[in-house]
């Protein structure tokens, strides 16, 4: 059983990397049937696969098309596993509100960050694109998030990030949230200038940065 469990989790990870949605779903069902816990399938199978996908993306072997289709396979399997997750299935790595700031509709980068955060166990509330600035704060308050992630590809929308940080300060809420920024024209220097807590250059480093920023925080919610 142990050997079979290890083997099937490896096969699930490999199927995610191979972008084989039907294969991943089939293997997830088989793993459940064999008694492997849903949480374990997610963390040791799907997430491991997405880790490899992330590495291939970083090394220039995979690009956005492959990232999207691999993550589709992961999400399809998660749908199968959801009914089998129990209350103790897993702790969230953190609760995050994410969106593309007002004035910008480019959301591919944001979507990749969301995918990688979710595959690493974060609970992500996605506000979409062209998001009114106050919405980030309202949503973060509503879902008791620990972090707000702001994305922008356009130079003109960057000022919105600064405004979100300012609004948090004005409302006396700055201490409650870590703010991470990213996108084409964004840099560490810009993040420092607007007093954001972190900057990530890509989806993989966003996960590392989010873990780093939230490492001191208590985890609260149930994954997925």
């Amino acid at each position: 059983m142990l050997k079979r469990r290890v083997q099937i989790l490896k096969e699930i990870a490999a199927a995610v990397v191979a972008m084989d949605e039907n294969g991943v779903v089939h293997l997830a069902r088989e793993a459940l049937h064999q008694g492997v816990k849903a949480n374990e399938i997610i963390m040791e199978g799907l997430s491991k696969g997405m880790e490899v996908v992330g590495k291939r993306y970083e090394s220039g072997e995979y690009f956005i098309p492959q990232m999207l289709v691999a993550s589709d396979a992961m999400y399809a399997a998660i749908e199968v596993l959801k009914p089998h997750l129990t209350g103790t299935a897993g702790k969230s790595a953190g609760r995050i509100v994410i969106g593309v700031v007002e004035g910008d509709t480019h959301d591919i980068g944001k979507n990749l960050v969301k995918i990688m955060l979710e595959s690493s166990g974060f609970t992500v509330h996605d506000l979409g694109r062209d998001v009114p600035l106050q919405k980030f704060i309202e949503e973060a308050e509503a879902v008791q998030a620990q972090m707000i992630c702001l994305s922008s590809l356009m130079t003109t929308a960057m000022s919105g990030m600064k405004e979100v940080v300012r609004m948090l300060k004005t409302r006396g809420l700055r201490h409650k949230y870590k703010v991470m920024v990213g996108g084409g024209p964004i840099s560490q220097a810009f993040a420092d200038a607007i007093e954001a807590d972190g900057y990530a250059a890509n989806a993989v480093s966003a996960v590392k940065k989010a873990k780093e920023l939230l490492s001191g925080d208590e985890t609260r919610s149930i994954m997925f």
């Binding site: 972008m19 956005i64 098309p65 492959q66 999207l68 289709v69 589709d72 959301d107 591919i108 979507n111």
Partner: peptide
């Protein structure tokens, strides 16, 4: 939708 275009490139 751009993500659908990029998805289709792989599929």
């Amino acid at each position: 939708e751009p993500t659908e275009v990029y998805r289709a490139m792989a599929k």
